[in-house]
Design a protein around this nucleic acid. Structure first.
Length: 415
DNA sequence: TCTGGGGTCCTAGGACCC
DNA sequence: TCTGGGGTCCTAGGACCC
């Protein structure tokens, strides 16, 4: 006998905008956009009233204002988003410990083991929605199904402020008429390619042999997409997933990549990244920089160290070298629009890492910086930041060349 | 519509090893 | 010495998600 899982996908509607309307009643029922000047002129989230005019997340503020002249811009309160998102997740934990949070405003719940306590999956979904609205005041949409993927499709269909339950056995009929764009993993490019093949609905995709679209999407994507269209999804709800990379980036409009600019920007970004790495107790081996040019084309350069690290000076210097290489390879590009870096190949910063340094017979060619000194500096910085906040001090010049987004917004944005 | 920041996964070629 | 096959790691790019 096959055990059926019962999965909820819960998604807070227009999360940032809903929080603003919750905290300031004067904004309720008005078209508002979170973002604007502090976020590089980009709309991070739009209320449903604004969406009715076509305003979307990711859109430039100017464009949004054109679509909706009465649009109100609010600057956003990131700490409040975090607090309220956490409060919602805490309510979820009253129903089941099996909560997989996939972003600030979204989570999967496996309620298979909670049915004897709280009733059917649909009952649990209704109770969860009621409690979140009564206790927090935010609308939560939920999809209920036997797989994660289908639950997510269902929650998209349920929005705004709705509940959609896909009964076991009814999966095929539910999915068939829906557009392929609702499938997880189908973005603009894939959608266009499939449309060219005459495939527009999930049902049409389900009837397609993977071999027929393999050359379009690659073997892996073709197979998994057809599987999803047929509701073949055996992923389980995972309570904790460890991060695979930590990064930071900064858009700069249109800047001449002088050495001073490159060094100071990468210094700022490196400190953000290494501080987060160290606060998680992580170190990483591979450093990747990303350089985006004025025309929005982008390149990456990476380097893998012999030993994992979270040291600011070491990582910053490697980022500068990689960035110089990338710029050198593209002499025709005179301006950059973004610099970014990411540390991957993560591992726990346990004793092994430190021992490897202490007993290394010869320094590695690419890790000649004094590791003890580097770590001592980082530790001192961490302690100061802990007491006085992250703005308090920097390894490099206190005068940051950073001109990008407000720090509070360097986090997930709603799409 | 010329657009922010933080992530994940996949592909493909080349180096290298057994 | 020449040849083949398989596996892993690294690098660079791309698509996608929130």
């Amino acid at each position: 006998m096959v055990h059926l899982a019962h999965i909820l996908h819960a998604d807070l509607d227009a999360f940032y905008a809903s929080v603003e309307q919750l905290l300031d009643p004067r904004l309720r029922h008005l078209p508002i956009a979170v973002g604007g000047s502090g976020t590089g002129g980009v709309v991070l989230a739009a209320s449903y009233e604004a969406r009715a005019f076509g305003v979307r997340g990711g859109m430039s503020g100017r464009m949004a204002k054109q679509l909706c002249p009465s649009l109100r811009f609010v600057s956003g309160q990131f700490a409040e988003y975090q607090r309220l998102g956490d409060a919602v997740v805490a309510i979820m934990h009253d129903f089941t410990p099996l909560v997989e949070r996939i972003s600030i405003d979204e989570a999967f719940l496996d309620v298979s083991g909670a049915i004897h306590l709280f009733g059917s999956p649909a009952d649990i979904a209704r109770a969860l929605r009621d409690r979140v609205f009564a206790e927090i005041g935010l609308p939560l949409s939920i999809g209920v199904a036997t797989t994660k993927h289908l639950a997510k499709v269902a929650s998209q269909v349920a929005k705004p402020d709705g509940l959609v339950v896909v009964e076991p056995g009814n999966e095929r009929a539910f999915l068939e008429p829906l557009p392929i764009g609702l499938l997880w993993g189908v973005g603009p490019k894939t959608e266009a390619r499939l449309h060219n093949r005459g495939i527009r609905t999930i049902g049409e995709l389900a009837d397609t042999k993977p071999e027929a679209i393999r050359h379009l999407l690659g073997p892996s994507a073709a197979g998994s997409l057809v599987d999803r269209a047929n509701n073949r999804d055996d992923r389980r709800v995972e309570v904790s997933r460890r991060a695979r990379s930590v990064g930071a980036q900064s858009a700069c409009g249109r800047k001449e990549p002088t050495d001073e600019f490159v060094v100071s920007t990468l210094g700022y970004l490196t400190e953000r990244v290494t501080r987060r790495l160290r606060s998680k107790g992580k170190v990483g081996r591979t450093i990747t920089v990303r350089v985006r040019f004025a025309d929005l084309s982008a390149v990456t350069r990476s380097h893998t160290f012999e030993q994992p690290t979270a040291e600011s000076i070491l990582i910053r210097d490697m980022c500068v070298e990689l960035t110089r290489n990338a710029l050198h390879d593209h002499p025709d590009e005179r301006f950059v629009s973004l610099l970014g870096l990411s540390v991957s190949g993560l591992d726990d910063a346990d004793g092994d890492w430190q021992l490897a340094f202490q007993f290394a017979p010869t320094p590695h060619r690419d890790q000649t910086a004094d590791p003890d000194r580097g770590r001592a500096i980082d530790k001192a910085i961490d302690q100061i930041c802990e007491r006085f906040g992250t703005q308090a001090v920097s390894i490099w010049s206190t005068k940051s060349a950073h001109t990008g987004m407000d720090d509070g917004f360097r986090s997930l944005a709603e799409k």
